[in-house]
Design a protein around this nucleic acid. Structure first.
Lengths: 249, 249
DNA sequence: CGTATGCTTGAATCACGTCAACTGATGTGG
DNA sequence: CCACATCAGTTGACGTGATTCAAGCATACG
C-alpha cells in the first residue's frame, strides 16, 4: 500500500498510455520486471504466427502491427496496431501460442518481460492480474471495433474513423492531444489496416485532405478539423476504454 | 484437489464447448455459481451497449450475437457470434461496461452468474482466473480473425470461411462433427456477420450450393464437402484454440 | 383473409480493385 | 559523380464485385 515506493522502473519505462490501466502502486512491482530492451528495424518480423512465446513485450516507441498472413502470401492483413505504452502480445502469457505475426511497422523499441517472472508476480497479486486481464480485454474491444469498421464502413468513413482512433490513442499515449503526430506509417500500412488497396487509400486520403479533415504526409498525421473528422468517421471513442477518461459508453 | 466431488452442477449445465477450457476440477467450483436461467426470444436485446453489468452469461442453447449498432441505426454489425458452451459477456466482469449490444439471434437460454459470486471464487483461485482469462483471449483471437476475414476476403471465400468456423465451433460445442447443424440463423444474420448485404449473401449462398460446398435452408446448415469448403474459404482452425484439439498453430 | 418475414431474382449503378505508367526522393555501387 | 535500382506516392483507364432498388413468391401468423 506504500504509494510510489520501492524499486523505481528504468527511466525509459513510462507509465503512460494504455499501461495506465495498471495502478501506480502495481506498476512499482511490474515495471522492474522488464529486464531487457530490444530494437527492431522497420518492416521486420518480431514474432511469427504459431510460435510459442515465453515472454511478452511492452512497446516503448514506434508502431507495431499484429498481422495475419493470407494463404497466397504476398499480402497480409493488420488486425491491430500498437503504440507506445501498449502491451504487444500480453495474450501470449495465458495462451502461449500466437495466432498472428507481430511485425515492426516502423523502427520500434520494446521492453521484454519473461512469463516466468510475470507468473511469479501475478500468482501473488490477484488485483494486478485483473488489471492485466482488463488490458487484454480493451484490446478485444478494439478488435471488435476494427471488425465493425472494416465490415460496414465505406472507404471514406473507414479511413476517417481509423485516423480518429489513432489520434485518440496517441493522445493518450503521449499524455496530451496534439494536432500533428509523427507516426511514420505508409499508405500501404493504412491499406493493410483498413482492408483497402493502397491505390484506393491514396484517393481517400486526397478526399480527406480536400474535405479539410486531416492530412498525412511522410508519416506525419495532421488533424485539420477534429470534430469534422469524427463526424465523417462516425467516431465515438468509448470502445477504447481510455485510462483517465470519464467518457461514458 | 478432490476430483469431481462436491456440489454437482444443475443437469442443464454441460461442460461442453469452449467452457472446456475450464478443467473438470475447476468446473466443479464454477458450475454451481450459475444460479439462474433465462430464456430470450429470437431478435430480442439481452444487454445494451453502455450498460453496467453485475453479472455474466453462459450460453446454454441458441445463438447470441454481439452487435455494434451503427450511427444511422436501422442497421447493426455483428462482431461475434456465440454458441452453446460460450461465455457471452465474461469480459464484463473485469470491464463492467459493455461496448456492444448483446442480442439473441435465435431463441436462447442462458445461465447467469453474479460478478460478486464470481469475484469471491476467483479471488481465491488464481488458476481458474487464468482459465477464464484464456477464454476471453480466445474470443479476442476470433475477433481478430473476423477482422481479417471481413477486411480482406471476397464474398465467396468470406462466407465459406464463415461457415467453416461455424462448423468447427458447433462441432466442438456438440462434442462431435456433424454434416448438418440446426442453427436457425437467417440470411440477414449472415449478412450482418460478414459485412455483406442480404441480397449479396443470397447470391453467394447459391454459388456455394452450386459449387458443392455447403447449403443452408431454413436455418439448417449442411456441409456437403468439408475439404472443399475449407479450401474455398482458405480456412485454418488454429485461431479457434479449440479445447481437446491438438491442432498446431 | 391480410400482413409480416424470409428468400429469390433482375437490372442499374457505384465503390473499389486491377493494371499500368509516371513522378520524386533516397540510396548504392562502379 | 553518374547510372541504376528501389520504394512511396500519384493519377488515369478500365473491369468487376457488391450495393441498391425493385418486384415477386413463398410460408407463417393473428
Amino acid at each position: 500500500m506504500t504509494p510510489d515506493a520501492g524499486h523505481p522502473a528504468p527511466s525509459d519505462l513510462k507509465r503512460k498510455g494504455m499501461i495506465e490501466h495498471v495502478s501506480p502502486h502495481h506498476w512499482n512491482a511490474l515495471g522492474p520486471l522488464f529486464a531487457e530492451r530490444h530494437t527492431y528495424a522497420a518492416n521486420t518480423v518480431i514474432s511469427r504466427r504459431g510460435a510459442t512465446l515465453d515472454h511478452s513485450l511492452l512497446l516503448l516507441d514506434g508502431v507495431v502491427a499484429r498481422s495475419i498472413p493470407r494463404a497466397n502470401m504476398q499480402h497480409s492483413t493488420f488486425v491491430a496496431l500498437q503504440f507506445k505504452g501498449d502491451f504487444v502480445d500480453l495474450h501470449a502469457f495465458p495462451l502461449k501460442q500466437l495466432d498472428h505475426d507481430v511485425v515492426a511497422v516502423t523502427a520500434a523499441t520494446v521492453a521484454v518481460i519473461q512469463h516466468a517472472a510475470l507468473k511469479q508476480l501475478l500468482d501473488g497479486d490477484i488485483e494486478l492480474s485483473r488489471m492485466l486481464w482488463s488490458l487484454t480485454l480493451v484490446d478485444a474491444s478494439i478488435h471488435r471495433h476494427w471488425a465493425m469498421r472494416n465490415s460496414s464502413m465505406r472507404g471514406f468513413a473507414r479511413v476517417a474513423n481509423f485516423f480518429s482512433e489513432i489520434d485518440a490513442r496517441l493522445a493518450a499515449a503521449l499524455g496530451q492531444q496534439q494536432d500533428t503526430y509523427t507516426i511514420g506509417i505508409t499508405q500501404t500500412d493504412i491499406a493493410d489496416a483498413t482492408g483497402l488497396t493502397p491505390v484506393h487509400v491514396n484517393r481517400v486520403l486526397r478526399d480527406l485532405r480536400e474535405d479539410g479533415c486531416c492530412a498525412i504526409a511522410s508519416g506525419q498525421l495532421t488533424i485539420m478539423d477534429r470534430a469534422r473528422l469524427h463526424r465523417r468517421g462516425d467516431f465515438d471513442p468509448a470502445y477504447l476504454y481510455l485510462p483517465n477518461s470519464d467518457a461514458e459508453l
